[in-house]
Amino acid sequence: MKIAGFGVEAWLNEYETTATTDISQSSIAALTLGQVTALAGDDGQQFYQHLNDMKLNYGWIEGSPEFKQLVSDLYTKVPAENILQTNGATGANHLAIYSLVEPGDHVIALYPTYQQLYDIPKSLGATVDYWHLKEDRQWLPDIDELKQLLRPDTKMILLNNAANPTGCLLDEAFLKQVVALARSVGAYVVVDEVYEPLDGTPFVSIADLYDKGIATNSLSKTYSAPGVRIGWTATQSTAIADTFRKYRDYTMICGGVFNDQLAVLILKHRDEILARNREIVAKNAKIYLDWVAQEPRASLIAPQGISVSCLKLEIPVDDETFCKQLLAETGVLLVPGSRFDIPGHVRLGYCTQTTTLQRGLRLLGEFLRRYDA
Rank of each mutant, 00 (worst) to 15 (best):
M1P: 06
G5Q: 11
W11L: 08
T18F: 06
T20S: 12
D22K: 14
S26A: 04
S26L: 01
S27K: 03
T32G: 03
L33R: 06
L39P: 07
A40P: 03
Q49G: 02
L51S: 04
K55R: 13
I61G: 02
P65F: 00
V71M: 10
A80R: 08
I83E: 09
L84K: 01
G91S: 11
G91N: 03
A92H: 00
A96E: 02
Y98I: 15
V101N: 05
G104S: 13
V107C: 04
I108T: 00
T113R: 02
Y114M: 03
Q116G: 13
Y118D: 09
P121T: 06
A126Q: 00
Y130G: 05
K134G: 03
Q138E: 15
Q138P: 07
W139P: 00
P141F: 12
D142N: 14
D144W: 04
Q148R: 10
L150D: 03
T154N: 04
M156I: 00
I157V: 04
L159G: 00
N160P: 12
G167L: 04
C168G: 12
D171A: 05
Q177W: 02
L198M: 05
D199M: 04
G200E: 13
P202E: 10
V204Y: 09
I206F: 13
L209Q: 08
I214A: 06
K221N: 11
T222K: 14
P226Q: 13
G227M: 10
R229W: 07
A234Q: 09
D242A: 15
K246T: 12
Y247E: 10
R248E: 07
Y250T: 09
Y250G: 06
C254H: 15
V257D: 01
D260Q: 14
Q261Y: 11
Q261E: 13
L265Q: 05
K268V: 08
I273G: 07
R276G: 09
I280H: 01
K286E: 05
D290C: 04
Q294N: 05
Q304V: 10
S309G: 07
L311S: 06
D319G: 03
D319H: 01
C323P: 09
L327Y: 06
T330W: 14
T330H: 15
T330L: 15
G331A: 07
P336T: 00
S338T: 11
G349V: 05
Y350V: 13
Q353M: 15
T355Q: 07
T356Y: 11
L357T: 07
R359Y: 01
R359V: 06
L363W: 11
G365N: 07
L368I: 01
A373G: 13
